[in-house]
Nucleic acid binder design. Structure first.
Length: 422
RNA sequence: GUGGGCGUAGCUCAGUUGGUUAGAGCGCCUGGUUGUGGUCCAGGAGGUCGGGGGUUCGAAUCCCCUCGUUCACCCCA
């Protein structure tokens, strides 16, 4: 293949029709269901002060080695970063604007991480998500999780597994960390080299290892839920019973630790089991009760999730659901008299709310009919010399058996409208 | 960041042990007389075989480097 002069940067891609229409439909559907649950949209900047993301934790790869950061032209220059995730931006916005809690918001947009691309993993990827700030109630957790679960169902996905865990809070996690660290340290010689390094940085993350040699050790490791204190245990119980009440299936996964350090108590993840690849997490989230305060705001509990649009679409492919939307125009105007009638007819149809398109460049009728067919439009409006002289068009049914007939150009909009309505 | 697979027309791919002007299907364009698409038929456009270097009389075919892609680790959506 001849190498083009420029191509989309590594890990990025162009999303073209009809796939782009499918993404649009997915985001629209998410927006609808979020609005139905009382969430409003927040549109936040695509880059932030680097410090906003630094607060996510020094032991997360997302912050330490996957950030697209740069300095601007200011004096003094400001150190900025393309957002690697959106929860931090939302918390920054909350701390900045102090909306009335509970603040229920949803968002959509691209995020950036400097990673090795592979299936379902891109340097620019899109997430949709929701957050509730200022609500400690376990029923907020349930509402949020339910929104995610129902959204996957609404797309037609059936092979999505919900895993839930609690990571405790500052009152009980230290005891667990101590027990886990002691347990892993005792067996450090049997851990993979990678996990030995991870143990030094963040013992919790060892539970995430997929290396074979680690599995038996991980399976027998102490689990957080056994260490939950009274309040956090009650919270977790309430979340579970809430999910049970709503009939939402889930698994308790004691190894679900998530990648961001800010999580406390409830954490969860949606895995698309129809995906063969390792990148089968289509969504995840949890509580982050200390994040707003870390960013300079008032102590505020928070819970939310982010769903990966790119991966969801891959999962939809794997399950063969949520197909791209069909054609968008209803009438294709074929004009072999120079094109001015097509110009006029298209404007009339569009003004009347009817999708219309046409060919350009004065091609033959045969060629224009081919384009009309390809457009997916149910009707063609054909204009030849006869029609031009009579002020009419030939309205032809391209998909059914009703043939064609002549109609006055002035009646085109109303005739098409009545044809489309039955 | 580490390791493996792959990289031939817009797309999906063939290309024999390296040997003359690189092929197919689909798609696209133009036709198949006298205004009509979806089937059929005939033509046509389109590739310096990802890029660079090397081996050789000769390389898409072998070697090296590089870029991209893909899979796994890692990480995560």
């Amino acid at each position: 293949m001849a190498e083009p002069t420029f191509r989309a940067p590594k890990g990025t891609r162009d999303i073209l029709p009809p796939e782009s229409g499918r993404r649009r439909a997915l985001v629209d559907r998410f927006a609808d269901s979020a609005a139905l649950s009382g969430f409003g949209e927040v549109v936040s900047p695509i880059f932030e002060d680097l410090g906003v993301f630094k607060r996510l934790g020094e032991s997360t790869d997302i912050v330490t080695k996957e950030m697209f950061d740069f300095v601007d032209k200011g004096d003094p220059p400001q150190h900025l970063a393309l957002r690697p995730e959106l929860t931090a931006s939302i918390c920054r916005a909350y701390a900045e604007h102090r909306p009335i809690p509970p603040w229920k918001i949803w968002y959509e947009g691209p995020q950036f991480r400097y990673e090795q691309p592979q299936a379902g993993r891109y340097r620019q990827f899109t997430q949709v998500g929701v957050e509730i700030l200022g609500a400690d109630d376990p029923q907020a957790d349930v509402d949020v999780i339910a929104l995610g679960a129902r959204f996957f169902e609404s797309l037609g996905l059936r092979q999505v597994t919900l895993m839930v865990n609690s990571l405790g809070d500052e009152s009980c996690r230290p005891a667990y960390m101590e027990a886990l660290t002691a347990y892993l340290t005792d067996r450090v010689g049997d851990l993979s080299a990678q996990s030995q390094v991870t143990l030094e940085r963040n013992p919790l993350r060892v539970l995430d290892s997929k290396r074979d040699e680690d599995q038996s050790i991980i399976d027998a490791a102490p689990v957080m839920v056994d260490f939950l204190g009274g309040e956090t245990a009650d919270h977790f119980d309430a979340v579970r019973s809430g999910l049970d009440e709503l009939g939402i299936a889930y698994e308790i996964s004691s190894r679900l630790v998530r990648g961001l350090d800010y999580y406390t108590r409830t954490t969860f993840e949606f895995a698309a089991t129809a995906l063969e690849s390792a990148q089968n997490a289509v969504g995840g989230g949890g509580r982050y009760d200390g994040l707003v305060e870390d960013l300079g705001g008032p102590a505020t509990p928070g819970i939310g999730f982010a769903l990966g649009v790119d991966r969801i679409l891959l999962a939809c492919d794997a399950e063969d659901v949520f197909a791209a939307p069909g054609p968008s125009v209803s009438v294709f105007v074929v004009d072999v008299t120079g094109g001015s009638v097509a110009l006029d007819a298209c404007q009339r149809l569009r003004a009347g709310g009817i999708g219309a398109d046409r060919a350009y460049g004065g091609r033959s009728m045969k060629a224009q009919m081919k384009v009309a067919d390809r457009s997916g439009a149910p009707f063609a409006a054909i204009v030849g010399e006869d029609e031009l002289a009579a002020g009419e068009v030939t309205l032809r049914d391209l998909r059914g058996e009703s043939g064609q007939r002549r109609v006055a150009l002035d009646d085109l909009v109303s005739d098409v409208r009545s044809l489309l309505s039955n």
